[in-house]
Design a protein around this nucleic acid. Structure first.
Lengths: 109, 109
DNA sequence: CGATAGCGCAACCGTAGGGTTGCACCTGGA
DNA sequence: TCCAGGTGCAACCCTACGGTTGCGCTATCG
């Protein structure tokens, strides 16, 4: 369950969740691109992308003189599995969510 | 996306996840009980239970001179829903992106 | 009653984390 | 070849956070 710490930690920040959502919409983007539409500096975005990358939630690709980041959702499955397991121990309500998890984690590695 | 911040923040700490898991096993427990089987002080546990409570992940009940905490996993649904939604979006976009890349260049990442 | 076991609150400390600025380095294009 | 845009790295603030200790209050049991 080692990855859970990094994933939850990465998801704990609102700016990082924004970045992930935006990356989800764009497919790929550079740190500079993302910083342009956010109220923070490029370096801040870059640091966030770094921690997201450490958590395995994004991957980087060099394209010419820019570096494009794309989301890699696989590690989220583990976090969701943790929640479903712990939550499902005592609450039937999460059974429905577990089904969602199965659907969302379908494409995971 | 209000609650997500508190939930992910609460889940970002390993000790708090331990507490949640232990509470899941025990059903109910006091801060003192939980602190006994952890390498931290009772006050630390109490603070953690406080943030878990702020996130809506636990509820407190007074029983005599002790306060028993029990898990209330409902708000996790929202966090999982967020992950499922964003992750699902990724799947579509990534598939489209990979198609583009495959067609455009064979410069595979 | 009185002693004891829990809880609640507050002060305090060290470190990690988000953010910024500044600058050096590389790469692509005119 | 020179210029501009993009990245990488480092130093530096400031706040939040996890953890501790100490003390006072409440309430239960003998």
């Amino acid at each position: 369950m080692g990855v859970a710490d990094a994933v939850f930690g990465a998801l704990a920040d609102g700016t990082r969740r924004n970045l992930l959502a935006r990356l989800g919409e764009l497919g790929e983007a550079s740190a500079t691109d993302l910083a342009r539409e956010l109220p923070v500096s490029r370096q801040a975005v870059q640091k966030h992308l770094g921690t997201l990358s450490d958590a395995g939630l994004v991957a980087a690709r060099r394209a010419g003189r820019e570096v494009l980041y794309r989301p890699t959702p696989a590690p989220m499955s583990e976090a969701m599995a943790w929640m479903a397991e712990v939550g499902g121990q005592w609450d039937e309500r999460l059974a429905a969510l577990e089904r969602q998890l199965a659907r969302a984690g379908r494409t995971q590695a």
